[in-house]
Amino acid sequence: MDITPKQLKEKLDRGDDFVLIDVREPNEHEAFNVGGQLIPVNTIPARISDLEDKKDAEIVVYCRSGARSGMAQRFMQGNGFTNVRNLTGGMLAWQDEFEG
């Protein structure tokens, strides 16, 4: 299941309890982010065990456009994570919606 920028902003504004993961590269994260924990997509297989206790938690993953986070979402779901949501359109859509 995916999540729109508007839905994510509402969750952040309410202070909902969920895990937010930025799967972009460190330079992209430094340039602009919405507070997600940085775990670049190519490091997720090695770091999946760090997230083991979050298997049933709501997790939102995001990247620049939604492609890398979609890969991360599928990988995590394949490893038993039950509630992983991909930010539709990624940070590009977020910036269009709220920065534009």
Rank of each mutant, 00 (worst) to 15 (best):
D2N: 13
P5R: 06
P5D: 11
P5Y: 03
K9G: 03
E10M: 11
E10W: 05
K11C: 01
K11M: 04
K11D: 07
D13K: 12
D13M: 07
G15L: 15
G15W: 14
D16I: 13
F18L: 03
L20K: 03
I21N: 03
I21G: 01
I21W: 02
V23S: 04
E25I: 06
P26C: 08
N27L: 08
E28H: 09
E30N: 04
E30G: 04
F32T: 02
G36C: 09
P40C: 02
V41S: 11
N42Y: 12
I48R: 12
S49E: 14
S49V: 04
D50Q: 08
D50A: 12
L51C: 05
E52M: 10
D56F: 00
I59G: 00
Y62E: 04
Y62T: 10
Y62A: 13
C63D: 09
S65H: 15
A67M: 02
A67R: 02
R68N: 12
S69F: 07
G70P: 05
M71T: 06
A72F: 02
N79Q: 08
G80Q: 12
V84E: 01
V84W: 04
L87M: 05
T88Y: 10
M91E: 07
A93N: 01
A93Y: 00
A93W: 00
A93L: 01
W94G: 00
F98L: 14
